[in-house]
Nucleic acid binder design. Structure first.
Length: 897
RNA sequence: GGGCGGGUGGCUCAGCGGUAGAGCACCUGAUUCACAUUCAGGGGGUCGUUGGUUCGAAUCCAAUCUCGCCCACCA
């Protein structure tokens, strides 16, 4: 596609806009992201957490999808048949609410359009927004299998929903019941417990006097919601509360309603709260509802579904709940029944969707019985068949599962999966997968389908298998289920992850995936959650446009710890862009210097490698191992950090600088042997550069797919391969690991840094070349010195590096002591001997301190016997190193004095 | 009330048992030779506090302060 070749056509700065869309189109056109069930490879499957079809993707999605794409690309390169199933969620309440807002602008309500008409509008809307999400995913480089894209409300998912509903129903796990539920008066639907947010709010505790029926005084109750008193059916006290024992069994008169209600005893009453007497309103309080059942009390609803007072509210009928409260307080005040009012903080349930205050009320709804489903789902995690990463989120899951209550699944909405239950005029219920023609009990053909739809999460709970074809036993289902990894944020562990787990265990008989990778939330600069109301949300597409998809992905992954929140910051984006630019320019450098290079067999240790070659290849192979291991731990930040450090600090700042002289065209040497050697060395240097760059790009590809592809395509390749995306994942070559080379390079780098420092201290002008004289202290030192010569020339800006003997050590020179050689800088005219002695003394003092520390440690019996052998050895080596440096410095000091 | 997480250089955050790290910011210097989206160097932290375990603790344990999140039917 792109011609291989020189870097002459590469701009000096990386411009993601010029490459990203090109490569994405190429990948898709070539079908690289499509799973191949005929491949015979091991399948590796991820299903996307389907984004709400009406929304657009935000930074949280960008992180979520970056992680999934990293895993998918890594596994694909590693030889798996990688399948990433994309799709979207119909998001019942959210979407319906949005559409209702839309049509409200036209002055319409959904009732004006009718069910059919309204749904037609929602589908139009869905088409428009669903494609926006797909577009965003493509922009970010997501290598999904678009041929398998799904929607929670498509035909297949709908079949799965019906199948599962009927199976649950037949097993008695779905039932219809009349309970107190969370009613959102704004969305006009019931919502499940986890869709209720609890907000701590400042409120008041009202103490209200209820006259005793006997006429002997009052019983005073405390309540935060006086308007519900209209539905009171009893007053309760603790059975052992001495203050009120005598009143148990008596009656009180409910003020305003003048209803006679019993005074009962119940152990759940807290004698220490308020007066110790509590009003009981089973129709509007979950606690009271339970107590009502225990004591056979009636339920009186005094509020309508829109949270206005109903016909049971007497003279308050028709009032809005807060207005009613004010009026009731006033009336009680006037009747002298208001005892006192206290400030009181308490938590108020609000609708997670619209923020309206939830009204608990009694209503007939569909529920899923959770206990039998929770049990195996708990065991799956307990017994390790399913693992959370990081582990702590397993506890979040278990905590929720173990305290689970039945799941209210019906919603009074239109947008969603309609409940497959019908009733005939006789009141018989028929629940069936296919729309029934007649009543299963009496045969009546006059059937009415339940008008309600299912909770959105009911269909998302089936996602890992409904997307693969269930309830049909499709080839995809057989091959790709169970999936492998699920990637999502901790905020939907209970909403979604938990429900997928029990649904899968129920219908598939096994876990839907073996690992759940949980990531944190992306917050704004000030650490706040990104939200519409704060208007601090960021569209990933804007970031892609400004910095490129690779930079966005880098920013989201680099420097973050698994499962932790991260804040979005401009500077981090700049760091990411700079890194991309660094890769670009390092690659330009390499490509500019590959002229005449033909890739041969892979490099091995038999080649005439120089010290820097051996060092960088050793480091490369260690990096390959680290990246592999970090990915296996799902520690993406660590993996990317390793690559960043290696590429920038080691490859660019050291290796490339060291290799430069070998690449420079030399004047034709008359000696054919020398020129042949130089040519061979040039080829070798080119080979190392190309190998290190290419391997690093391959390791980087899952994280930064676009730039890695662009450059990789420019590199000369032995065998033809069409894309970095489908090339083999790098393997560690243990024969290239060379610890001696790493030690020597480390020493040399230390020497170079010291020389640079001394040049600075002595104010040696940058342009000025210096002379270096090296005194080896051992045969190894001599070898190292020989190898170091050209390197010192280059990186310490030395005109001449000579080997000297003990006798030749100059007096007017600065001293740098390394472990097995000493470097002298003979800067005769600049050196003040007493000053140099002082400098050496200072260095010596620091060294002594270290030596003392190491010696005392190595004399410590406890350390020697209990510390790991490797640590002890490491300390010994360090001490020996310090001692030899000390010896050099002491000798030098004496020499100069 | 329970559970979880954070408190590390000016800022944002890694590290989580072997002598404190990065990016940004700051200071000094460099630059026709891949890159100023750069390079070389520098200053700056008793790792919230107090105890304990350990040969050794930012890292493990306990307590405590502080910030944040999640769960819970506090009328």
């Amino acid at each position: 596609m792109t011609p291989q070749g020189s870097a002459t056509n590469m701009a000096t700065a990386y411009d993601p806009k010029l490459v990203e869309s090109k490569w994405y189109a190429y990948w898709m056109e070539q079908g690289f992201s499509q799973a191949d069930s005929a491949s015979g490879k091991k399948p590796f499957t991820i299903v996307i957490p389907p984004p709400n079809v009406t929304g657009q993707l935000h930074m949280g999605h960008a992180l979520d999808n970056a992680i999934q794409d990293i895993l998918i690309r890594w596994r694909r390169m590693s030889g798996d048949d990688a399948l990433w199933v994309p799709g979207t969620d119909h998001a019942g309440i959210a979407t319906q609410a949005k559409l209702e807002e839309e049509i409200a602008k036209e002055g319409l309500t959904r009732h004006d359009l009718g069910r059919e008409g309204f749904l037609a509008r929602v589908w139009d809307w869905k088409e428009q927004y669903g494609s926006r999400i797909v577009e965003q995913l493509r922009m970010m480089g997501a290598s999904c299998d678009w041929s398998r894209e799904r929607f929670t409300l498509d035909e297949g998912c709908s079949k799965a929903v019906r199948e599962s509903f009927v199976r649950y129903y037949e097993r008695g796990l779905i039932y219809r019941g009349t309970y107190i539920v969370n009613w959102c008066p704004h969305c006009m639907t019931v919502i499940s417990d986890i869709e209720v947010d609890h907000e701590e709010r400042a409120g008041r505790l009202y103490y209200i006097k209820y006259p005793l029926a006997s006429g002997n005084g009052f019983i005073t109750v405390a309540t935060t919601r006086p308007e519900t008193m209209l539905g009171d059916v009893a007053v309760a006290v603790h059975p052992t509360d001495e203050r009120y024992r005598h009143l148990i069994g008596q009656e009180a008169i409910l003020p305003l309603m003048e209803r006679v209600i019993p005074i009962i005893a119940d152990a759940t009453v807290d004698p220490a709260f308020g007066t110790g007497c509590v009003k009981i309103t089973p129709g509007h309080d979950p606690n009271d509802f339970e107590m009502g059942l225990r004591h056979n009390l009636p339920q009186i609803a005094v509020m309508a579904k829109d949270a206005t007072m109903n016909e049971n509210a007497g003279i308050y009928q028709g009032m809005e709940r807060m207005a009613c409260r004010a009026r009731i307080l006033q009336d009680l005040q006037e009747q002298g029944l208001m005892d006192k009012i206290e400030e009181h903080h308490h938590s108020v349930g609000t609708c997670s969707r619209c923020d309206a205050v939830i009204e608990p009320l009694v209503s007939e709804q569909w529920f899923v019985k959770m206990k039998p489903l929770a049990e195996p789902a708990i065991a799956a995690v307990r017994e390790g068949r399913l693992r959370f990463v990081p582990e702590r989120y397993g506890r979040t899951y278990l905590n929720w599962m173990e305290n689970i209550r039945d799941w209210c699944i019906s919603r009074q909405l239109w947008w969603g999966h309609r409940i497959p239950a019908w009733t005939c005029p006789e009141g018989h219920r028929t629940v069936a997968i296919e729309d029934p023609a007649c009543c299963s009990t009496c045969g009546s053909t006059q059937l009415t389908q339940d008008p309600d739809v299912l909770d959105t999460w009911f269909s998302s709970a089936l996602w890992p298998f409904s997307t693969l074809g269930w309830p049909e036993t499709t080839p995809d289902l057989k091959r790709y289920f169970p999936t492998d990894v699920l990637v999502t944020g901790y905020d939907i562990i209970s909403f979604w992850v938990a429900r997928m787990i029990f649904s899968s265990l129920e219908f598939m008989g096994r876990e839907p995936f073996h690992t759940v990778v949980i990531h944190g939330m992306v917050r704004d600069t000030q650490g706040r959650k990104m939200s519409k109301s704060l208007n601090n949300g960021i569209d990933p597409a804007d970031i892609v446009a400004g910095y490129g998809a690779d930079a966005l992905r880098f920013m989201l992954i680099h420097g973050s710890a698994p499962g932790n929140d991260m804040s979005f910051q401009q500077e981090r984006l700049e760091q990411a862009r700079n890194f991309a630019n660094k890769i670009w320019n390092a690659s330009r450098f390499v490509l500019m210097n590959l002229e005449g290079y033909q890739p041969g067999p892979p490099l091995d240790s038999s080649a005439q490698l120089t010290l820097p070659d051996r060092w960088i290849l050793s480091r490369l192979n260690k990096v390959t191992t680290s990246v592999q291991e970090a990915l296996e731990r799902y520690d993406f930040g660590e993996a990317l950090g390793t690559l960043y450090d290696f590429l920038w600090d080691e490859f660019c700042d050291w290796y490339i600088e060291l290799v430069k002289p070998r690449l420079q065209p030399k004047a034709v040497d008359p000696d054919p042997q020398t020129s042949e050697e130089a040519a061979a060395d040039l080829r070798l240097a080119q080979g190392v550069l190309a190998t290190v760059l290419r391997t690093t790009l391959e390791l980087l590809h899952p994280f930064m797919p676009f730039i890695s592809e662009e450059i990789w395509q420019h590199l000369p390749k032995g065998e033809a391969s069409r894309s970095i995306m489908i090339t083999d994942w790098p393997k560690t070559n243990a024969t290239l690991i060379d610890n001696a080379a790493e030690r020597n390079m480390t020493a040399l780098m230390e020497g170079i840094r010291s020389i640079r420092n001394l040049r600075g201290e002595m104010n040696v002008p940058h342009g000025r070349k210096i002379i270096l004289q090296i005194l080896p202290a051992s045969p190894e030192g001599r070898t190292l010195a020989e190898e170091a010569k050209p390197l010192l020339q280059r990186l310490a800006n030395a005109s001449e590096v000579t080997m000297i003997s003990e006798a030749e050590v100059p007096a007017k020179a600065l001293t740098i002591a390394l472990s097995n050689l000493t470097i002298y800088l003979p800067l005769a005219e600049m050196i003040d001997i007493p000053q140099e002695i002082a400098r050496l003394a200072k260095e010596l003092a620091a060294l002594e301190e270290e030596i003392a520390r190491l010696e005392s440690r190595l004399q410590n019996e406890g350390f020697l016997s209990k510390a790991p052998q490797a640590v002890v050895e490491q300390e010994r080596v360090k001490l020996a190193d310090y001692l030899s440096k000390k010896q050099t410095l002491v000798a030098r000091q004496q020499q100069l004095s």
